Simulated scan of single mutants.
Amino acid sequence: MMNPAFAYSNIKEMVPIFIHVSSILKGLIENEINQGNSNINLTPYISKAALDIIGLVAYNSILNSSPSTLQIAITILSEYVPFIGDIPIGHDTTNVATCWALYLLVQHPHEQDLLREELVKA
């Protein structure tokens, strides 16, 4: 049902948003590095970036400034049904997949170099 949203023509129109949010993310990480931090937890940064991309693409609005109704409902329900808090919501899966991909690239520098070469060619 969602496949049409991910057609090439639709994704192509989203690229400027991806670049914009990625540029902000890059600046935030560079600020951490410039402050002397060498061990940076990327999870909150990636999570907010994913939420911003979803918000801008779907609603033309940045969503990371306040918790969504769904997040509030999950928080309340998790008090009574503990496993509810373990259910991933829309941007969490993107966040986790991105963080794992980055972690694995750091662990495997040769693959990181191959990916970088492929991106430069593209």
Rank of each mutant, 00 (worst) to 15 (best):
M1K: 13
M2L: 10
P4W: 02
A5R: 15
A7P: 04
A7I: 10
S9Q: 13
S9G: 08
N10R: 14
N10S: 12
I11Y: 01
E13K: 13
M14K: 07
M14P: 03
V15T: 14
V15A: 10
V15M: 11
P16L: 05
I19S: 09
I19G: 07
I19Q: 10
H20S: 14
S22F: 03
S22K: 04
S22D: 06
S23F: 06
S23L: 09
I24S: 15
I24R: 15
I24W: 15
L25E: 08
K26C: 13
G27F: 01
G27L: 05
G27Y: 01
I29S: 07
I29D: 06
I29K: 05
I29F: 02
E30G: 10
E32N: 09
E32T: 06
E32A: 09
E32V: 06
E32M: 05
I33S: 09
I33K: 12
N34A: 15
N34S: 15
Q35A: 15
Q35N: 15
G36M: 07
N37F: 03
N37Q: 11
I40W: 03
N41V: 12
N41D: 13
L42Y: 09
T43E: 13
T43S: 10
P44T: 08
I46M: 08
I46D: 10
I46W: 02
S47M: 08
K48N: 15
K48H: 13
K48E: 15
A49N: 07
A50H: 09
A50F: 07
L51F: 01
D52R: 00
D52C: 00
I53L: 04
I53T: 11
I54R: 01
I54G: 02
G55E: 03
L56N: 05
L56M: 11
L56A: 07
A58M: 14
Y59H: 10
Y59A: 12
N60A: 14
S61M: 11
S61A: 11
S61W: 05
L63V: 06
N64L: 04
S65G: 14
S65H: 07
S68H: 01
S68R: 01
S68Q: 02
S68W: 01
T69N: 09
T69F: 05
T69M: 09
Q71G: 08
I74R: 03
L77N: 00
L77R: 01
L77I: 00
S78V: 01
S78R: 01
Y80C: 02
P82H: 00
P82L: 00
D86P: 06
D86A: 14
P88W: 00
P88G: 05
I89A: 06
I89W: 01
D92E: 11
D92N: 08
T93R: 10
T93D: 12
T93K: 11
T94H: 11
N95P: 05
N95I: 07
V96L: 12
V96C: 11
A97Y: 06
T98R: 00
L102K: 03
L102S: 06
Y103G: 12
Y103M: 12
L105A: 04
V106S: 14
H108Q: 09
H108M: 04
P109A: 03
H110L: 15
E111L: 15
D113Q: 13
L114P: 04
L115A: 07
L115P: 00
E118W: 00
L119R: 00
L119G: 00
V120Q: 08
V120K: 10
V120S: 06
K121P: 03
A122C: 13
